[in-house]
Design a protein around this nucleic acid. Structure first.
Length: 319
DNA sequence: CGCCTTTGACCAGCGC
DNA sequence: GCGCTGGTCAAAGGCG
């Protein structure tokens, strides 16, 4: 599964020439000083000829193209880094899974075997798994438990809550301390739709207390709440309607929400590489980009500075 | 007042 | 049958 294109769209556009540094001393002289690089064409004292103007525009276009190229390179590097990190994470999870696989013998055979199944399935980015054994054991619940998936969520070190923010609404209906893990396990039901059969179990990882292990059972019979509301309501990309997203919070500063799922039918989850070519996905990405940009205070500040700067310059040249 | 969380009780499955 | 364990229920209380 290649999620290289599913990255946080909150890009630092590195628009330093435009950025107004808040900590920089502001004096009357520097307020009207425009970086030479960004000096707009209309700043020429004498009215430029059409040729000059065309040349200046071409120059500007070249500069923008160059900037675009640099940004593309930065994005590529970011994607590479992201993939490398993700692979490392998956390696760690694989190792943890093997550890549990060879752990102390479980009294409850079925329970342990189910755990192993899930751990193995988890190796492929918390994919859905439904075994024949599981289905045959509980024929009555096969509809509900047809799809199970597992997600690992990194939380703050001091965060003791068992809340996994995946965009859905959950109602907690129970909590239990299990034998295998001293951390309590919380039981949630999807409360977004009354008839939604999806259940979720959240428990801290026995190896890493800062990691929440969320096990989802069933399939939502309603659209994702964040998709129904506004596309920018959630901080991350929440395209999937099946809840197996993993949110990786890195040191509290930046939140990278990785939605490791894809579609309603998690059967094709294994081979499902996000189809960024699909027009709706593209549109969604564009919307996400726009949303992220408009939410980015750096970007809005830079934009405001650029606009106000130009207005000031226009006034300056007029007077 | 409605929704959510907490928590003890209850139930079912499993091994001995 | 008994004990252990995981999962669920439901009453009570908190909160906005």
């Amino acid at each position: 599964m290649d999620n290289s294109s599913w990255v946080d769209t909150s890009l630092d556009l590195n628009i330093n020439p435009l950025r107004v540094k808040s900590d920089a001393p502001v004096d009357a002289e520097s307020t009207f000083r425009v970086p030479r690089k960004m000096k707009p064409t209309f700043m020429f004292q004498t009215k430029p000829s059409a040729k000059e103007e065309t040349g200046a525009i071409e120059e500007e276009l070249n500069r923008v193209n160059e900037e675009n190229r640099k940004l593309t390179e930065m994005l590529t590097v970011m994607c590479d880094n992201y993939n490398a990190l993700r692979n490392q994470l998956m390696d760690c999870m694989c190792k943890n899974g093997e550890k549990e696989l060879h752990g102390p013998s479980k009294k409850r055979k079925s329970a342990s075997s189910n755990n192993n199944d899930n751990n193995i399935a988890m190796n492929g980015n918390s994919e859905s798994s439904s075994t024949d054994e599981e289905l045959s054991k509980k024929p009555r619940e096969e509809v509900i438990k047809a799809k199970t998936s597992r997600a690992y969520v990194k939380t703050e070190a001091g965060d003791k809550s068992l809340i996994v923010k995946d965009g859905y609404q959950w109602r907690k209906y129970g909590q239990k301390v299990t034998r295998d893990n001293p951390s309590p396990r919380a039981y949630f039901k999807c409360s977004f739709a009354p008839s939604c059969p999806v259940k979720k179990k959240v428990q801290r990882s026995i190896d890493d207390q800062s990691v929440l292990v969320a096990t989802y059972e069933g399939e939502h019979n309603h659209p994702h709440p964040s998709m129904e509301a506004t596309s920018g309501s959630s901080h991350g990309l929440t395209l999937g309607s099946v809840p197996c997203s993993a949110s990786l919070a890195s040191s509290g500063k930046t939140n990278i929400t990785l939605d490791l799922t894809n579609s309603k039918s998690s059967n094709d989850a294994k081979s499902s590489k996000p189809k960024t070519d699909a027009p709706e996905v593209r549109q969604f990405l564009v919307e996400q980009m726009a949303s992220s940009l408009t939410k980015d205070p750096n970007f809005t500040a830079a934009l405001a500075a650029a606009i106000s700067g130009r207005m000031l310059q226009q006034n300056h040249t007029k007077w």
